[in-house]
Every structure is written in structure tokens, then in C-alpha cells.
């Protein structure tokens, strides 16, 4: 496998103008490097900077200072369209033109990209259960997602960005969306970044989770690493004091997450507190860090 980073973000700073005089700083000197062929889960609470980061990569938002490099080449507003041949995204279905048909969309995209996987297009069409001559407004959200999936995958991207792709869809749509997506990206070794809040659904899909908090990357780990590095301690009532090794708490579960289970166990025994131990789920880790 090629080990050169597919995407490098270096010293990125981005601020939203709330009005002429006020700005909200989202990123300040943010850096990240992604390896090719991996699936990354971009996690964080609302406002952590997930969408902003993806929009910066896509050139939808300006940033200054900072540099984003795709396969070693710096992306600038002037040359961005070249990179967008290889970086695709799945936008929200509400962004689609309502009176354009799915077929017309496919034709338009096919003519705009240098590469187009006709075989994959045929495969997605065969698996779909709707008429592609129908207008977008006549399709359900799940059907629109199938069109968007085809539009994002057929150009044979090397980097695929998904921002809350399935927020409003039912579980069946979500299941098949990821199933189809994974089969394609596995074949091609496409790098994927999925920003989502439905973390349990992607728990078995990603290679690495990138936790964002207030525009900072606070943790970067794989699922197995997360479960071996941390331990969940459950109580009847959460202790009032900070426990040794504690990295965060899950208030609803009356539990805490520890990065050093032995120390935590000793501390709890010293304090005479009763507890149960469990391997944490990704949701537990998310809640503790978020």
C-alpha cells in the first residue's frame, strides 16, 4: 500500500464572520495527516468543527493561514477544481435541484468528471428500486441518498467525504448505504472520512476515529485500541472527587472512563467505593471525551 499521506492539513486556521466586527474561531493552527485507503470517523459534538473541516477540504470555506495538501500538492482556490476530480462528497439531499431527474444528474456528472465507473453505475442502478427518470422531488430521502451515493462513487474518488450522510434516513437505508459504500471503497482502497453522530452504526466500519473538540483533535485511535486503552467503571452514584486515571464521565450511566484501570481500581478500593468494570463502547468513549 502507498504510505504517502493522501491528505495533509497544516496549521489550519478558520473563523466564521458572525458579522462585520465579530468572528468565531473554529480552528486555530490545526494539523492532521491521513493515510490512503483508510476509513476515518470524524467525531465530536455539535460545533466541534467537523463540517467546517470538511468544507475547508472541499474549498467551500476559506481559511487563513494554513495549508491543505492532497497527495503532497497544495490545494488553492485557483487549482481546487483539479483536486475535486479525485475528492467527492455526499451532500445533504436537500441541496439537490428538485426538478432535475436522477438520470439527468447522472448525465451531468458523467460529463464533468474525467473518470466514470460505468460498471458501478449499472450496479447501483440495478440494486435500486425506483425509476431514474423521475425528478428528485418525487424520490424519497432514501432514494435520493442512492442517487447521491452513485454521484459520489462513480467518479472513482481517492478521497470521499461524508458529512452526516444519513441523518434523516431509516435504519434500512442506513444499513444498505454503508454496505454498498464499504464494498466499493474496499475494492478501490478509497480513503473515506465520515462525520456523524450515529457513532454506534459506524463502530465496526472505521479504521480510526478522530475526536474533535472546540476545533482541536483531542484523540485519534482505532476501535480495538480504544477498547484496550480504556476501561469503563460503573457506580450506583458517581463519586464527587476526581479519580486517578479518569479521563471523562458518562453522567447518564453513572460511570467514568479510565485510561489507567489499575490505578483507578486501587484509588476506588482505597476510597471504599463499589463499582463494576466493563469494556467501553465507542459511544462511552465519545461521551467521556466530548
Amino acid at each position: 500500500m502507498n504510505t504517502q499521506a493522501i491528505l495533509e492539513i497544516d496549521g489550519l486556521s478558520q473563523a466564521y464572520s458572525r458579522n462585520l466586527f465579530r468572528k468565531t474561531q473554529v480552528f486555530n493552527d490545526f494539523s492532521l495527516s491521513l493515510e490512503p485507503g483508510k476509513i476515518y470517523a470524524l467525531l465530536g459534538r455539535n460545533g466541534a468543527g467537523k463540517t467546517t473541516l470538511l468544507n475547508c477540504i472541499l474549498g467551500l470555506l476559506a481559511y487563513k493561514p494554513g495549508e491543505i495538501r492532497f497527495k503532497g500538492e497544495t490545494m488553492r482556490p485557483g487549482n481546487l477544481h483539479r483536486f475535486l476530480q479525485k475528492i467527492t462528497s455526499v451532500p445533504s439531499p436537500t441541496e439537490m435541484f428538485p426538478t432535475v431527474s436522477a438520470n439527468q444528474y447522472m448525465d451531468f456528472f458523467r460529463k464533468n468528471y474525467d473518470n466514470w465507473d460505468k460498471e458501478l453505475e449499472a450496479r447501483i442502478r440495478n440494486m435500486s428500486d425506483f425509476d431514474w427518470t423521475r425528478q428528485i422531488k418525487a424520490l424519497s430521502t432514501g432514494q435520493r441518498m442512492q442517487v447521491l451515493q452513485a454521484l459520489a462513487l462513480c467518479p472513482e474518488p481517492e478521497l470521499l467525504l461524508l458529512d452526516e450522510p444519513l441523518g434523516v434516513t431509516d435504519p434500512v437505508v442506513r444499513k444498505y448505504f454503508y454496505k454498498n459504500l464499504l464494498s466499493v471503497v474496499a475494492e478501490r482502497e478509497t480513503t473515506v472520512i465520515i462525520a456523524t453522530h450515529l457513532i454506534n452504526e459506524i463502530a465496526n466500519l472505521f479504521d480510526e476515529a478522530l475526536f474533535l473538540k472546540n476545533g482541536c483533535l483531542i484523540m485519534r485511535k482505532g476501535m480495538a485500541e480504544m477498547q484496550s486503552d480504556y476501561q469503563k467503571f460503573i457506580f450506583d452514584k458517581l463519586p464527587d472527587v476526581k479519580i486517578e486515571g479518569e479521563v471523562g464521565r458518562m453522567i447518564g450511566d453513572a460511570a467514568l472512563l479510565s485510561e489507567n484501570p489499575e490505578k483507578t481500581e486501587m484509588d476506588l478500593q482505597t476510597r471504599g467505593l463499589k463499582f463494576k468494570q466493563e469494556t467501553p463502547s465507542i459511544e462511552d468513549v465519545f461521551e467521556s471525551f466530548a
Binding site: 463540517t51 468544507n55 472541499l58 474549498g59 467551500l60 485557483g78 481546487l80 477544481h81 483539479r82 475535486l84 476530480q85 467527492t88 462528497s89 451532500p91 445533504s92 436537500t94 441541496e95 439537490m96 435541484f97 456528472f109 464533468n112 468528471y113
Partner: peptide
């Protein structure tokens, strides 16, 4: 972010 659909395409 609505209306940015075309901006995602490989066009200037």
C-alpha cells in the same frame, strides 16, 4: 450551505 452543490463539482 444550501446552493453549494455545484461548488462541490470539479469546476471553477
Amino acid at each position: 450551505g444550501e446552493g453549494k452543490f455545484l461548488s462541490r463539482l470539479p469546476m471553477t
